[in-house]
Design a protein around this nucleic acid. Structure first.
Length: 277
DNA sequence: ACGAGAACCTGTTTGC
DNA sequence: TGCAAACAGGTTCTCG
């Protein structure tokens, strides 16, 4: 489900409700997620106060008083949903349930179990965490721009579509937002990554930023089951230009061309072969 | 060293 | 109608 805008939306929703709250109980129903749950997860969380909730790439970061950080990745189907004490019954695929001092309950639900939860003992350990240390720049941060992107793509023979899904190039993009960004940049997903330099790289970096900012403003995209922490749906899916729109008219050119769907690296790509070169 | 493809797992949609 | 195949927002490993 979740790419950067969805994770950011969830992080903001959780921060509003959980900052300053203390974990009173941790219940683990299933430990075999993409990686096994840390065996000491409950011991590290119980009695700890949430100092801050943030995000790096598609990881949610729960910073605790005392310096520890819980990392959560939602994989394809993961959700973090808030509820109250009364509805604390575990539903199917609720793998971890946290209870807080004000009666709030947070459920980590993930049917496919591609998600994971891990722990870093300190902020320093977080920076060196194996799942974070090789990530590329945050696309909404100051350090991301055309030249930086061009540098990361230099020498890559793989299609630009595949290169943008590589989290070492730029962090947080997934299948939807790569397709959308390439559309707005006017670049073919089949173009060799190393040819994206100069003005093309500028356009692409700008398109990535713009798409992500608009998506966050809309609360992310809800496909079949994405929900914000509050339970609301995101609605950016209504603003998609190409994703999932095979056969529909290209929204931006008068070419009369329809959106094509191709498969790259086993994943669907949607684009306008006229507008995107 | 790099890139392509498979694998991980479950639920829903599509097509014969 | 029913069943099997295809497909889904991600990451990571293996193989050539």
């Amino acid at each position: 489900m979740p790419e950067l805008p969805e994770v950011e939306t969830v992080a903001r929703g959780l921060a509003r409700r959980l900052t300053g709250r203390t974990v009173t109980a941790v219940r683990t129903n299933r430990a075999d997620l993409r990686a096994p749950l840390p065996t000491d997860l409950a011991a590290r969380l119980e009695g700890s106060r949430i100092a801050r909730i943030g995000r790096r790439a598609k990881y949610l970061l729960f910073h605790l008083d005392g310096g520890g950080v819980m990392l959560a990745h939602l994989g394809m189907s993961g959700r973090l949903v808030l509820g109250s004490d009364d509805e604390a019954e575990a539903r199917p695929h609720d793998h971890v349930i946290l209870r807080f001092d004000d009666g709030t309950v947070l459920r980590f639900n993930d049917a496919r179990r591609f998600g994971l939860i891990d722990f870093a003992a300190s902020e320093d350990a977080l920076a060196r965490h194996p799942r974070l240390e090789h990530l590329g720049p945050e696309p909404l941060g100051n350090e991301f721009n055309g030249p930086v992107l061009a540098h990361a793509l230099a020498g890559k023979a793989t299609p630009i579509k595949a290169a943008l899904l590589d989290q070492r190039v730029v962090a947080g993009l997934g299948n939807i937002y790569v397709c959308e960004s390439l559309f707005w940049a006017g670049l073919s997903p089949r173009r060799s990554a190393r040819t994206v330099t100069g003005e093309r790289a500028e356009r692409l970096a700008s398109a990535i930023r713009a798409v992500l900012e608009r998506a966050i403003a809309a609360g992310g995209s809800s496909l079949r089951d994405y929900v914000q922490a509050s339970g609301e749906l995101g609605y950016f899916q209504h603003q998609w230009a190409v994703y999932g729109k095979e056969g529909e008219a290209c929204p931006d050119c008068d070419c009369g061309r329809t959106i094509a769907r191709i498969v790259q690296g086993g994943r669907s790509t949607f684009y306008c072969a006229r507008r995107q070169r």
